Computed example of a mutant assay.
Amino acid sequence: MTTRDVVARDLPYAIAGDRLRIVFQPQIDLRTDRIVALEGLSRWTHETLGPIPPSEFVAVAESIGAIHDLGRFSLAECCRYGRTWHDRGEDLAIAVNVSPLQLATDAFFDDLERQIAVTGMPARNLILEVTEAQKLIDPDALATRLDIVREWGITVSIDDFGTGHSTLERAATLHAGELKLDRSMVAREDRRAIEAAVNAARLSGMRVVAEGVETAGQLDLVREAGCDRAQGYFIARPAPPRVLEEWMADRQRSSRSSTECLDLYDERGARWPSAK
C-alpha cells in the first residue's frame, strides 16, 4: 500500500475523530506593519507516517470527496477562534481556504451561514480564499452565490494568483475583493510581474496580498511594488492559537521585529533549537 493509499484510507477517520488541528499565519498591512489578518491552515500528524504536508492531504481529500468534511472542520474552527479574538478586542480578519468543489454545493453556503450564526463570528471579518487546484464548474452561477455572501460582508479572495487556474479573469468573474500573489512569484522577485498584477488588481478594486515572503528583501520588494499586505515565514510561521496569541502580545508590547519570536516555533507549536 502506497503512502497516498494510506492517507486516502485514514484521512476521513482523522477528520471524524478530531485528529486535525488548525494553525494560523499572520498577514501584515504593509503601510503600518500592523497584523490585520490570520490565515487558518489545517495540519495533520498521522499516527505512523508523521506530519502529512497539507498539499498532499488536501489533494487527496478533493479526490476522494472528503474535502467537504475537511472544509467544514476548518470553517468551524476558524469561526470559533475568530469570534474569540473579536471578543478580546482583536480586530482581525480570518481567512479560510475553500475548494471550488465545496463552492459547487448548496451545503457549503448553508454551513457558512450556520457557522456565522452559531459562533457569532462577524461576517465582515471573514475571508474566503478560493484555492486554484480545481477548475470552476460554473463560474457565473458561483459568482451569483458569492455575491450573496459578499452582501453579508465576507471578502472573496483568489488564492495562488499566477499559477494553475488563478487568473485576473477568474477574480473578476467571481467579483473578488482580494488577490493573493503566489509564493513562486515572490520567490522569483519579479518586480515587473508583481507590479503588473498590482496595477491590474487596482483597476478591479481588489486588495493585493503577497504570499511566501521569506526575506527582508522580498518584504521591501512587495511593499515598493504596491502590495497592500504580506504573509510569509519572514513575518511569521504558522502557529497554534496559543503560541500565536503569546507572539502577538509580545510583539505589541515590545514593538520588536516579527521574526524575533514566532520563527522559534515549528508548526506543531514545539520550540525549535535556538539558531544561536
Rank of each mutant, 00 (worst) to 15 (best):
A14Y: 02
R80Q: 15
V6N: 01
F108D: 00
W44C: 01
A16S: 12
I137D: 08
R72F: 08
V60S: 07
A230V: 07
T167A: 06
T155W: 09
V58M: 09
S166M: 04
Q252A: 14
V36P: 06
V98C: 08
R170G: 03
V98Q: 00
E224A: 14
R19S: 10
E214L: 03
D69C: 04
T45Q: 11
A61D: 01
L101W: 10
G17Y: 11
V36I: 15
D33H: 14
M206V: 02
S254Q: 10
V156I: 15
P54T: 02
E245F: 09
I35L: 13
T48I: 08
R183D: 04
L146S: 05
I15Y: 06
D263G: 00
I28F: 04
L181M: 12
M1Y: 14
G17H: 07
V243F: 07
A143P: 05
G153W: 07
Q25C: 11
G89H: 11
P12C: 10
A107F: 13
R183G: 05
D190N: 14
H46T: 03
D18C: 11
R9C: 07
P238V: 02
R191L: 08
P273V: 10
E39N: 13
A239K: 03
D263W: 06
T32P: 05
D147S: 12
A8F: 02
W272S: 12
K180I: 04
A225K: 01
L264M: 14
L20D: 08
D10S: 04
M121I: 09
D160W: 00
L142V: 04
F161P: 00
V96R: 03
A200Q: 09
L264Y: 13
A193P: 01
L174H: 01
N125V: 06
L103I: 00
L262M: 14
D110Q: 08
D110V: 06
M248A: 03
M121E: 06
A216M: 09
P238W: 02
L70K: 05
A230T: 05
Y81I: 11
D159K: 00
G17P: 09
D5Y: 12
T155L: 13
R253C: 09
C79S: 03
T119P: 02
R268F: 13
L92I: 09
L179I: 15
V60R: 01
T173C: 14
M206P: 00
D138H: 13
V130S: 04
E47W: 05
R237I: 09
P12E: 08
M248D: 00
L101F: 08
A93K: 12
E47G: 03
T3H: 14
T163E: 10
R114D: 13
A59K: 10
R34E: 14
D159R: 01
L101R: 15
D138K: 06
A176F: 01
G65A: 07
W152N: 07
E90H: 15
I52A: 04
V213R: 01
A133S: 15
L92Q: 10
L112F: 13
W85N: 00
G269R: 07
A143I: 01
G71V: 01
T131H: 06
R34W: 10
A216T: 06
D91F: 14
Q25E: 13
P12S: 11
Q102A: 04
